[in-house]
């Protein structure tokens, strides 16, 4: 699998990062190199191996359905650089 500038464009768009031409060039080379390196995993046969998503065998962690008032709601909301009538401002979405 070769990694090209087109791939960089694709993932940059998915992750909403715009890149300069120089960044694009560098990242293409570097990611290609890293991806080549990680291909060593393919040397391992993992056909009957379960994937590990959580390292500890924990399940069923719940909280009770109790509504609580957060003491820092206002402080949290006011961290926004742009509040309009108590709403978080974003460029007009149609």
């Amino acid at each position: 699998m070769s990694f090209t500038e087109k791939d960089v464009d694709y993932v940059a768009n998915l992750s909403r990062i715009s890149l300069s031409d120089e960044e694009k060039k560098n990242f293409t080379v570097q990611l290609e190199q890293i991806l080549k390196y990680v291909e060593k995993l393919n040397r391992l046969n993992t056909d009957n191996i379960e994937p590990t998503a959580h390292i500890l065998p924990v399940s069923n962690v719940f909280r009770d359905d109790v509504a609580k008032i957060c003491p820092t709601t206002r402080f949290a909301v006011e961290q926004s650089a742009l509040l309009v009538d108590g709403l978080f401002g974003v460029p007009r979405v149609i």
């Binding site: 990694f3 960089v8 998915l14 992750s15 990062i17 990242f27 990611l31 393919n42 993992t46 590990t52």
Partner: peptide, 28 residues
């Protein structure tokens, strides 16, 4: 940026199994 791009790539359509799932199995 480099790591976000790499991480996005290994999860993206068509590569999830080859990279992410594979890595989870190797983790095992």
């Amino acid at each position: 940026k480099r790591r976000i791009l790499l991480g996005t790539y290994v999860l993206s359509s068509g590569y999830y199994e080859a990279y992410y799932k594979k890595a989870q199995k190797v983790r095992t």
